[in-house]
Design a protein around this nucleic acid. Structure first.
Length: 585
RNA sequence: GCCCCCGUAGCUCAACCGGAUAGAGCAACGGAUUUCUAAUCCGUAGGUUGUGUGUUCGAGUCACACCGGGGGUACCA
């Protein structure tokens, strides 16, 4: 159980003496911002006072009187207008830390009740090189999947590939007319990549080629056997190519159900929506309209719809991505029965998701909660979308290479004692970690400025800082010739006498509630904030409380236990974000 | 036109569905090194939270109106 949940149990009971709805006010229990106020504060009295017509401090006093002081709470006091400040007892912290030692989940407690979730993220177009624009969805989506999995949910990570688009017309055209047989034999993926680039360029300049490509795409969509055969031949190559980069990023999907997968269902979707009167013909296209049930009107007295209409079948008969997304919801709900479906897609598609979520609801697919986890764009220092110096899009692979290269430079400058192989590994872990963490540590809604120096710089809230704290921590065990397994907090008393020891102990016990918070809001930056605070608490401890030179063997062991718990928590926390650690750096 | 998102220190960002004196990092200045890894740490300085009204015990957070930036808005995805 999370520390705050434990506390809340007593708190709810105490609230029962002043309100019939204690759970609502128990939510107002939270960690204090300043340790001088204690560990947790309850803010219920002020708002309750109003309802009861009493003075806030009197209400607070009644709550405090009902709280069981003793074993678990060292002090409970009233401050200011009616804040209830709670300080946990050392014996409570100690016994929780002992439990934590043998907890394989490192203090993460399952979200109750455990449910199932589909996380839809990354979703690149196959056969086109991945670029910086795919980074956020991929990284944030993976973190959300990892976090929910760690909290006991059944998570399906699904990559909704763009595998049915116009790029295949170009590939088919190129393959037929411009293929280099030898190159194709040697590396079909590279040959496809070359052809895509080539034909894409050609068709921009040459309308005849552009038309030919569109024609090949149309034939594919109509089920032309030869084009379909080529598509089937290309797909495994494309997937293998994607897999390479996912492997490097340590990102793994449970399924790859892309646009092509839903293609056969689209006609039926349109038919069904028409039959139910949800979709209508308008200007030759089949559309879903969104009339406002409240019938709001504008200044001219015209009805204002909730949203503009969305087209599910174009006048030329083609389906749209709205159709595909609706088919996808239907399929997922009917076959996978998720409780929640999360779409990690950039903010610009907010309207689209509002439209299809609303439509799905009217269509009767209300079983799953549908969530659009939106995020802003990546910009350069000038505030404009991140581009290469030449103005082109930044390839993802190039970007990762540069991250590792930059990390390598720093490693070479600082870690002369590591051999070549270890340095390369450290550079990889640090470089990729920097890229991921820079993204995840930011509130996802705002645009974020891509800044190499800040990212790889090791001060402040960066992955490298945490990785370094971890490595220094491990160094203590090497230096002291101690194996963590040799420690045993059931034999060694954990001592929290120094304020820095106590603060670290408390911070360790707040891991679970932070991750739960991050999950609830789909905000990985809550985890990064926590880890940064934990690292700072550890640094203060490291400064104030010498471990190996502790005054007594008991104190030394106690501090080693705190070190080990910190290391585990950092490792686990970074793991939730898809970031690795190294023992030395 | 309408809708959505954003606006917090010079810069990059936090602030846990209204809580105590708005917190970090960078940059600046000052300090700590025969080290448990100085890639770390400590201190100083820096603010009318875009503006204005309102709601109340209490507002960066909520409401309304403006200002500024970005995005979306029926046949691309």
């Amino acid at each position: 159980m999370n520390t705050i949940e434990f506390l809340r149990r007593s708190y709810v009971e105490a609230l029962r003496s002043v309100t019939s709805d204690p759970d609502r006010f128990a939510q107002l229990l939270r960690p204090t911002q300043d340790p001088k106020f204690g560990d947790y504060q309850g803010n219920a009295a002020m708002s309750l006072a109003k309802e009861l017509g009493e003075k806030p401090r009197d209400v607070a006093q009644r709550i405090v009187d009902a709280l069981p002081l003793g074993e678990d709470f060292e002090s409970v006091s009233i401050a200011g207008p009616g804040f209830i400040n709670i300080r946990l007892s050392e014996s409570f912290l100690r016994s929780e830390l002992v439990k934590r030692w043998s907890d394989p989940a490192d203090g993460l407690t399952p979200l109750d009740p455990p449910q199932s979730m589909i996380v839809d993220y990354s979703s690149p177009n196959v056969a086109k090189p991945m670029h910086v624009g795919h980074l956020r969805s991929t990284i944030i989506g993976d973190a959300i999947a990892r976090i929910y999995r760690a909290l006991g949910w059944k998570v399906t990570a699904d990559n909704h590939l763009g595998d049915w688009g116009t790029q295949f017309g170009m590939l088919i055209y190129g393959w037929r007319n411009l293929r280099d047989d030898e190159a194709a034999k040697k590396s079909p993926i590279q040959e496809l990549a070359r052809l895509y680039k080539l034909v894409n360029g050609l068709s921009e300049q040459n309308p005849t080629i552009a038309r030919a490509c569109r024609n090949e795409t149309a034939k594919l969509h109509e089920g032309d056997p030869e084009n379909l055969a080529l598509w089937k031949e290309f797909m495994p190559w494309c997937l293998a190519d994607l897999e390479k980069i996912y492997e490097r990023l340590d990102i793994h999907f449970d399924s790859y159900q892309g646009e092509s997968f839903y293609q056969p269902m689209l006609a039926e979707v349109v038919a069904s929506l028409k039959e139910l009167g949800i979709a209508n013909e308008s200007e030759g296209a089949i559309c879903v309209f969104f009339p406002d049930p409240d019938e709001k009107v504008d200044k001219e007295g015209n009805l204002v719809p909730l949203f503009p209409p969305t087209i599910i079948q174009k006048a030329d008969g083609a389906f749209t991505y709205a159709t595909s997304d609706l088919a996808c919801i239907k399929h997922r709900v009917e076959h996978l029965h998720p409780d929640v479906i999360v779409y990690v897609v950039d903010d610009r598609q907010s309207l689209h998701f509002e439209q299809i979520f609303h439509t799905a609801g009217r269509w009767g697919f209300t079983g799953a909660e549908l969530v659009h986890v939106a995020f802003g764009k990546i910009t350069g220092k000038d505030g404009k979308p991140y581009k290469t110096r030449e103005g082109g899009t930044v390839g993802l692979e190039t970007l990762l290479d540069e991250a590792v290269e930059r990390a390598r430079k720093v490693v070479d400058e600082n870690s002369g004692d590591l051999d070549e192989e270890e340095r390369a590994n450290v550079a990889e872990v640090v470089g990729l970690g920097a890229v991921k963490y820079a993204d995840l540590s930011q509130n996802r809604m705002s645009d974020y400025v891509f800044d190499w120096d800040k990212m790889i710089s090791l001060q402040g809230n960066t992955a490298t800082y945490l990785q370094y704290v971890y490595a220094r921590n491990r160094s203590i065990f090497r230096k002291g010739n101690v194996l963590p397994e040799e420690l045993d907090p059931s034999r060694t008393e954990i001592i929290l006498a120094h304020p820095s020891e106590r603060a670290l102990g408390l911070k360790l016990l707040q891991f679970g509630e932070s991750v739960a918070q991050a999950a609830e809001d789909y905000k990985p930056n809550v985890v990064t904030n926590y880890l940064f605070e934990l690292a700072n608490a550890y640094n203060a401890f490291f400064r104030d409380c010498h471990v190996l030179k502790a005054e007594t063997p008991e104190l030394r062991d106690s501090r080693l236990i705190l070190c080990e718990l910190t290391a585990r928590t950092i490792r686990r926390g970074l793991d939730l974000l898809g970031i690795r650690t190294v023992e030395r750096m």
